[in-house]
Simulated scan of single mutants.
Amino acid sequence: MTTIDLSSFPAPEAIETLEFEKILADLMGDTQERFDVAGIPYDVGGLETDPVKVVDEAAAYRELLVRARINAAFLANLLAFATGSNLDHLAAFYDAVRLPGEDDERFRLRTVLIIQGRSTGGTEPRYRAVALGASTRIADAAVYRVGTSPQIEVAVTATDNDGVADPALLALVDAAVQAPAVRMVNDTIRVVAAVKAVANVVARIWLLPETSGTIMDALGAAVKADWAKEAGLGFDLTREWLVARLMKTGVQRVEIVEPGANIIVPNSEALALGTFTLTLAGRDR
């Protein structure tokens, strides 16, 4: 089951686009009409120093703030836009409670999974939501079966330790999914680390003539940081991705030696990056 991508939804039609100048024009038009009805000449509305216009500008700004507050109150009741305590109250309706230190985006994802997983039978979203709810150290989880085996596999990645879930973290998830109120009676569940392999990277780097050689020390760490941010379950390690991440300012050319081919990762697994061996091959324009 695919998790709903709330960010792909169009903006709600109930949200009003706010324009100060339009509100002011409406107020000035109303003011002009009232003066006309009263038979009072009024033809100085175009002057910035006109006291009536100054009052209308203040009123227009206050109306703008009120309309903005209405927009914000409406958005606070939508799962895609609610943040902070507003999200906490909205998620509580679905029995979702924020973990200590859990950010809005992770909590929002878990709430969607809890909603999707509400079923009389054990579902992939439900077990995934339970796994994510075991600890904020869980980066992601995949729930699947291997072939026709009746056993359910729950593979998890960690936010630290290069994505490798340690025994303590696996035990937390196992306790969560095996809980009597969670596991279906007929389900046999096994919790495993999603990282099945480690890939070492070897590359030759050419720098521009004016680039300091000290950049070589930072390149490996920068790519590892990019991998930690972008990679995860089912994320392939391609030579093109490595070249793109190694082409920092000052780098002229990159040649990937290892891996010798793209490493394709199944959706239920993750790959860890091992050692980085970067060789300064020369300088070129």
Results as ranks from 00 to 15, higher is better:
Pro100Thr: 08
Gly133Asn: 14
Asn161Met: 01
Ala165Thr: 10
Val173Asp: 05
Pro167Thr: 03
Gln151Phe: 06
Gln151Met: 10
Ala155Trp: 00
Asn186Gly: 08
Thr159Tyr: 01
Thr83Tyr: 06
Pro150Tyr: 13
Glu124Ser: 11
Thr148Ile: 11
Arg106Glu: 08
Leu132His: 07
Leu99Ile: 01
Ala193Glu: 00
Ala193Ile: 00
Ser135Ile: 08
Asn71Pro: 05
Ile138Met: 00
Pro100Arg: 03
Glu102Gly: 08
Ala96Cys: 09
Val146Gln: 13
Pro125Val: 05
Leu113Met: 02
Thr148Tyr: 06
Ser135Asn: 06
Val66Ile: 15
Ala73Tyr: 06
Thr136Ser: 12
Asn186Ala: 14
Ile138Ala: 02
Leu90Lys: 07
Arg98Lys: 11
Ser135Val: 07
Ala82Phe: 04
Val154His: 09
Val195Cys: 09
Gly133Glu: 05
Val177Gly: 01
Val112Asp: 00
Arg108Ala: 03
Thr111Gln: 00
Tyr94Met: 07
Leu65Gly: 00
Ala168Ser: 12
Ala165Val: 03
Arg190Glu: 14
Phe93Cys: 07
Pro180Ile: 05
Thr83Arg: 14
Leu170Glu: 04
Val112Pro: 04
Thr188Cys: 12
Arg67Pro: 03
Leu172Gly: 10
Arg69Leu: 14
Pro100Val: 06
Leu64Gly: 04
Val198Gln: 08
Gly133Pro: 00
Ala175Glu: 14
Ile70Cys: 10
Val182Cys: 02
Ala194Gln: 01
Thr157Arg: 07
Ala181Ile: 05
Ala168Tyr: 09
Tyr127Gln: 02
Ala131His: 04
Asn86His: 12
Ile70Gln: 11
Tyr61Asp: 10
Gly84Lys: 07
Asp166Ile: 10
Arg190His: 11
Asp140Leu: 05
Gly121Arg: 11
Pro125Ala: 08
Ala92Gly: 03
Gly122Val: 10
Ser119Asp: 14
Arg126Trp: 15
